[in-house]
Amino acid sequence: MLIVKNLHVRVGDKPILRGIDLEVHAGEVHAIMGPNGSGKSTLAQVIAGRDTYEVTQGEVYYEGVPLLEMEPEERAREGVFMAFQYPVAIPGLSNTRFLHAALNAIRKHRGLPELDAIDFLALIREKAAFLQMDAGLLERPVNEGFSGGEKKRNEIFQMAVLQPRLAILDETDSGLDIDALKIVANGVNSLRRPGRAFIVVTHYQRLLSYIVPDRVHVLYEGSIVRSGGKELALELEASGYGGLQRGAARDAAPALP
């Protein structure tokens, strides 16, 4: 579903990603872990289409199509979804109206008839109930005055409505208490399908106890330094990123005389 080949990305003069290789198949959940500043969020944002990053080298294919040549909205319409680490507020624009416009833009792209207000309302009520979202949030302006937890839950709610093929969760666990974390994780797990893949970006192992990944990748200074199964997350939890840094530095450093 997603193939990332030798991806190099920088912001201004500063290299952030230095040759990422990653392959995600339909039905899989991949976790990207790593310390702050390792480039996790950059990877998520580049896949979603943020243009503040400059891709200097490498390629990304989504369903066999070069992803980097697509506008962000085209990627979204083709099924790429990112749950934002910091969802922005849009004052005055109701969550419902926003999501209705988004869903219909996606449906139109796929040649499906637009959903009218009544069908749409029925759909979002069902999804909101499932995520135990307060129905009042639906009519509130997008993310305005939402608590940190409400914002994150709202992202997963949007995902449930838009039904993407590839969902990237960018530190969705940050700022969530344990109850909210469970609800969010349940929501994600219920959306797992053979035809859908997830990339879960997180700093902590905690989320991965609830969303169990098929593969775990550790990002350090812009490179994937280790990949493994779900046990790798537990190992990191025990040893921390500190040991990893020493290991990575040792691997990367030239032999000293």
């Binding site: 979204a76 990112m82 922005v88 833009a105 949007q158 838009l162």
Partner: peptide
């Protein structure tokens, strides 16, 4: 940020 957020949801 706002525009990107909307575009990421499929809006032009």
């Amino acid at each position: 940020d706002q525009i990107f957020y909307c575009r990421q949801r499929g809006l032009a």
